[in-house]
């Protein structure tokens, strides 16, 4: 059974052109997949559809065999953890409390149990949040908030993790840490889909790259094959250059 399978998925907002147009793609096993494409290509919508937050007008989305549009939200969220692009604001809770929201799919009792607290401790340790675990979420910087939200998603302990531009607010050190962590999660058996505009990081770290263009899957393959300069130039309308160093590492540059 595939971890993720999208079958001819289309989505459009009322009266607008299709945001996703007949996308079929499959991820059989754990992988770190970068989803790239220009603004408006449908990247975030694709993650929303996989998370069951948007219902496609056609097609099916199966996570571990579970149809995300037919199953209950609890069940879906035990399979898929989604970190949206926009950071919630005006949250009066502490870092620990925000991380514990990842345990909601596991029980609706009034209080979290020991297992929930264990999962929170692991997520806090993995995201290195110990020093501000009792600080109010709203008092953190953008990058720190991003790490807290990622910890909440980890606390959800789902086999599929969807991250929408997770490195947008992170400094270079934390970006490197994040991609290293995503690689570790992949090694632990998770499928990680990351929407990103950092093509160079995607080329370096991702096992697979999905290039979206006008709601269609323009390329799907290993980073060095999918991030092909001619395709990228057609998609992003700027010339791309690719260099491979002596160790076989791929570097991407763009511009005239």
């Amino acid at each position: 059974m595939s971890l993720l399978r999208l079958v001819d998925v289309s989505f459009r907002y009322p009266g607008a052109p299709a945001v996703l147009d007949g996308i079929s793609v499959e991820a059989r096993e754990a992988a770190l997949v970068a989803v790239v494409g220009p603004n408006g290509a449908g990247k975030s919508t694709l993650l929303d559809v996989v998370a069951g937050l948007k219902r496609p007008e056609a097609g099916r989305c199966l996570v571990n065999g579970l149809d995300v549009n037919r199953a209950g939200r609890d069940e879906v969220c035990r399979m898929v953890a989604h970190v949206p692009q926009q950071t919630p604001s005006g949250i009066p809770f502490t870092v620990e409390e925000v991380v514990l929201t990842g345990r909601i799919p596991y029980g609706r009792g009034l209080y979290e149990n020991e297992e929930d607290h264990e999962a929170m401790e692991q997520a806090i340790a993995r995201m290195r949040l110990e020093e501000f675990r009792r600080r109010r979420f709203d008092s953190l910087s953008g990058g720190e908030k991003q790490r807290v939200l990622l910890a909440a998603a980890l606390c959800q302990q789902s086999p599929v993790l969807l991250l929408d531009e997770p490195s947008a607010h992170l400094d270079p050190e934390n970006q490197a840490q994040l991609w290293k962590l995503l690689g570790e999660l992949r090694d632990m058996g998770r499928l990680v889909l990351v929407v990103t505009h950092h093509l160079a990081l995607a080329a370096r770290h991702a096992d697979r790259v999905w290039v979206l263009h006008h709601g269609k899957l323009a390329a799907d393959g290993a980073a060095d094959a999918a991030l092909e300069p001619e395709l990228l130039e057609r998609v992003f309308h700027v010339p791309f250059h690719r260099y491979v160093n002596g160790e076989g590492r791929v570097f991407l540059g763009y511009g005239h």
Binding site: A51, L53, R73, D74, V76, C77, R78, A81, H82, V83, P84, Q86, P88, I91, P92, F93, E97, V98, T101, G102, I104, P105, R108, G109, L110, Y111, A152, Q156
Partner: peptide
Amino acid sequence: RVLNVISYGEAWAAGRG
């Protein structure tokens, strides 16, 4: 407990089940 999460916004709450 659910009201706590809903106060974060519908997008976050829906993503938590």
